[in-house]
Amino acid sequence: MTAESRPKKIILAAGGTGGHIWPALSFGEWINKNHAECEVRYVCGSRPLEREIYAAAQAEPVVLPVDGSPLAGRGMGQKFARMRALLASYGKAASLVKDFRPDAALVFGGYLSLPVIMACRRAGVRCALHEQNARAGKVTRLASKLGMEIYSGWSECEPLPNKRFIRTGVPVRDFALPARGEAWKNLGLEGEAPGGPVVVVMTGSLGSRAVKDELCRAAGEEAFKSWTFVFAAVADKIERPSENVWLLPKVWDAAQLYGLADMLVLRAGGSTLTEAAVLGLPALVVPWMQAADNHQFHNALAFAGENEGMIWTENDGHEALVSSLVRLNGIKGKNHDRAGDLRGRGGAICENLWSLLFPAV
């Protein structure tokens, strides 16, 4: 069997955070559904969270013994240990490439990409990088200098010039959204699903306590008495601190949260914002201002410029938060024809990536 006729094999390398990992898993799931003959091999790092996310998606990755960037280590001891782990990871990645014999590899940025990139380049395997953020990370900038193909989730990938990247969008999961009542029940919430506006808050743990406090304060005001605020991944078990506020533990099945929501409050991770865009859900975006290279603020700007979205930061104050929520509720569903609209295009994003990696002859 020739290389051209045998089933394709691909490595998808993503680690660090869910912002890198979920796009890889989403693309892999799309490949399994649409190109079942293709063999997908995932690669991740050794952090427990990484393996937890893959396990939740019922995927078994090859685990490299690296858990962070040598440049970000605390003190020379940790930096040296991470450098040793990076070298060991290169050895394991090289063995994987040699044994698996992939036709292509797609890495999703971050420190984990480096050993896979090096192993593929040495073996002559085509390797491209997907950048989920509108502001390119260090590894993405290095990959660009090496002449690698860069696929961007947004119309910009600063500081790269437009000719150095191809916009594909961020691969996202293919959601089948339940009806609100079904989602309410599936999430284990008591009583009947509310009839007024439902705000689902998915801001993670990145400095989000202040955001939660401000939203809970807003929930108690007269203007929001008929609204319901549901916070994901902020409690060990379901809690109801006030009549219209629910606190949930981590929810792996995000379709339930999206099925419940009239609007979202989100951090500005590229994957989550793309999910909101594809599903057509309006969102108040709260960028984490301590993100590397301020990439979350760049993501928020890119999202708000093409979708039903607004931006609020903790420095803007409570009155601006209240005003933004009211305005967002008023405009939802009115702007469906913008040039960058991703509504319903989750499958098209993955198709674009596949076509770039395996162009038709």
Rank of each mutant, 00 (worst) to 15 (best):
R209V: 14
V200Q: 05
V200I: 04
V201K: 08
G204C: 06
A210G: 04
C216H: 01
G220A: 08
A219T: 13
G220P: 02
F224E: 07
S205A: 14
A210R: 11
E222K: 15
G204P: 06
L215E: 12
V200F: 07
G220S: 06
T203E: 00
G207F: 08
F229P: 09
V199I: 14
S226E: 14
G207E: 07
V211I: 15
M202R: 05
W227Y: 11
W227S: 09
G220H: 08
M202A: 10
S205I: 03
C216D: 04
E214C: 09
V200D: 08
E221T: 15
C216I: 14
V199P: 02
E222L: 12
K225M: 01
L215G: 09
V211L: 12
D213Y: 00
T203D: 00
M202C: 10
E222N: 10
G220V: 04
G220M: 05
K225Y: 01
S226Q: 13
W227C: 12
L215F: 10
V201P: 02
A223C: 04
A219M: 11
F229H: 06
A218C: 12
V199T: 15
V211N: 03
T203A: 13
V200K: 04
C216S: 11
A223N: 07
G220I: 09
K212P: 00
D213W: 00
G204R: 05
L215T: 11
E214G: 09
G207R: 09
T228W: 11
F224Y: 11
V201I: 15
R209P: 00
G207H: 08
D213Q: 14
F229V: 07
D213T: 13
C216K: 14
V199K: 02
C216A: 10
L206F: 06
S205W: 01
G220N: 03
V211H: 07
A219E: 12
T228R: 12
G204L: 06
M202W: 01
F224G: 07
C216E: 15
S205R: 06
A210K: 12
D213M: 11
C216W: 01
V211G: 02
A218Y: 02
W227A: 10
R217N: 08
F224D: 05
V201H: 03
S208A: 15
A223G: 05
V200H: 07
V200N: 08
E222G: 01
V211A: 06
D213G: 01
C216Y: 00
A210S: 09
A219D: 11
E221G: 09
T203P: 00
G204W: 04
A219N: 08
G207N: 08
A210Q: 12
F224Q: 09
S208W: 03
W227P: 06
S205T: 13
W227N: 09
R217K: 14
V200W: 02
S226R: 11
K225N: 02
S208K: 05
S226D: 14
W227G: 12
C216M: 15
K212W: 00
K212C: 03
R209T: 13
G207Q: 04
A223F: 04
T228N: 11
V201C: 05
V201Y: 03
A223D: 14
